[in-house]
């Protein structure tokens, strides 16, 4: 993430990370999730689902911050995101020793 000034409490800020899950056969290809994703995580895939629509595809998984907007704008209950617990190995200087093993 780009900051014009590094926040003083940057170490304490925890940016949540999410993983987008797509139930492809429910999708009707309206494109709302793609157009309104604030982090530009999705794009339209070239393959077809069972109904002949192009479901969205995750093109930029690392950008997802688990805001759930795709989930709540989707008219077809076809997409949702779940939070990925932070990995203590990647988080360098953070003191929290990962409580969740999974």
């Amino acid at each position: 993430m780009k900051f014009w000034r590094t926040p003083l409490d940057l170490q304490d800020i925890h940016v949540s990370k999410g993983m987008v899950l797509i139930l492809e056969d429910r999708c009707k290809g309206c494109g709302y999730c793609i157009a309104f994703c604030p982090r530009d995580v999705l794009h339209e895939s070239t393959r077809f689902n069972a109904k002949g629509y192009h479901p969205p595809e995750v093109k930029n998984p690392d950008a997802c911050v688990n805001c759930h907007y795709c989930e709540i704008i989707c008219p077809d209950l076809a997409i949702f995101s779940v939070e990925i617990p932070p990995h203590p190995v990647n988080a360098g200087p953070s003191e929290d020793n990962g409580s969740t093993g999974s």
């Binding site: 009707k28 704008i73 077809d76 076809a78």
Partner: peptide, 14 residues
């Protein structure tokens, strides 16, 4: 009953 009958882009689902 899902997928529902609402058209692609219909706002009722949301």
């Amino acid at each position: 009953r899902i997928p529902h009958i609402w058209c692609p882009g219909c706002g009722i689902g949301t």
